[in-house]
Design a protein around this nucleic acid. Structure first.
Lengths: 144, 144
DNA sequence: TTTTATTCGGACAAAAAAGTCCTATTTTGG
DNA sequence: CCAAAATAGGACTTTTTTGTCCGAATAAAA
């Protein structure tokens, strides 16, 4: 469904959110450890997210990554996915036709409509804060 | 969502179904032309589908691919997807956790449940015959 | 001011996916 | 039987994705 990069990106952002909510900044190493991802590759993904202003990166000693607490509620899963994988997952044609729409549909267009729309809805409404809260409270997990 | 191979596989199978329903056998070349796919690559995918007994391949002059008419209704999208991409799309964890379930969920597990289940339902119930009929009647399209 | 702990970013490497090419095999029609 | 028209399948190439390495830049602490 998502690329590996996107999976790491989502997990990393959630972990940064968890710690930011506790007013802590986290290092690349800390992130990679907590989400069980390859460090150097994760660094690339965090760079992308920082360039898209989804997370804030701070260089130097005691540096790391953080997210402004007040923004946690307003950052949606869709923002992360779009920054890394683009929006083809929930906007593109299920069979890869370049011109697929209600008037010129691929064979699975209408069947997929509901799934695609639900996925879009989900990504566009699920916010970082609630995802982070579930992890903090032990309701959900970022690894294994 | 699906790999390129799977997209080609689905389109190819639908096209074979369309022609089988008219009691015609189709050649690789005919398939690749109609679904706008790379011929040699499509050949590999058709081999996979034939090995999985989803389609029947016939060698030699006047050879090609076909599907027993009576089976069209019973072959589901899920059969094709499973043969090519496996069932990770609708069975695996959205964030790639190896052990993600109701008791040890990833942060998006419950949010994704509906989408995943709907996708599975869709793939497991949509049959080749109805997809082929829509193409035959000009309701849906296999290319552009 | 120097050391140290960080991220940044470019170049590289490995693995997987996508795609090509060529020869062997099969089948049928002449 | 032979030639022609197909698919089968192995080896190969290209592209994309995933992942690594290392030096430069940065910022704080000593």
């Amino acid at each position: 469904m998502f690329s590996k990069a996107c999976e790491y990106g989502i997990k990393a952002t959630i972990y940064i959110a968890v710690r930011s909510n506790e007013d802590k900044r986290v290092s690349l190493k800390g992130i990679a450890n907590h989400i069980d991802s390859p460090e150097a590759f994760t660094a690339k993904i965090l760079q992308m997210l920082a360039r898209e202003n989804i997370i804030l990166s701070v260089r130097g000693i005691n540096g790391g990554f953080e997210i402004e607490k007040s923004r946690l509620e307003h950052i949606k899963l869709a923002d992360i996915v779009k920054a890394i994988d683009g929006d083809n997952i929930y906007k593109g044609c299920g069979l890869g036709l370049s011109e697929c729409n209600e008037l010129h549909p691929c064979p699975v267009h209408f069947e997929f409509k509901k799934v695609r729309d639900d996925l879009r809805e989900l990504l566009e409404t699920t916010n970082l804060k609630s995802l982070a809260m579930d992890v903090s409270s032990g309701v959900s997990f970022l690894r294994i």
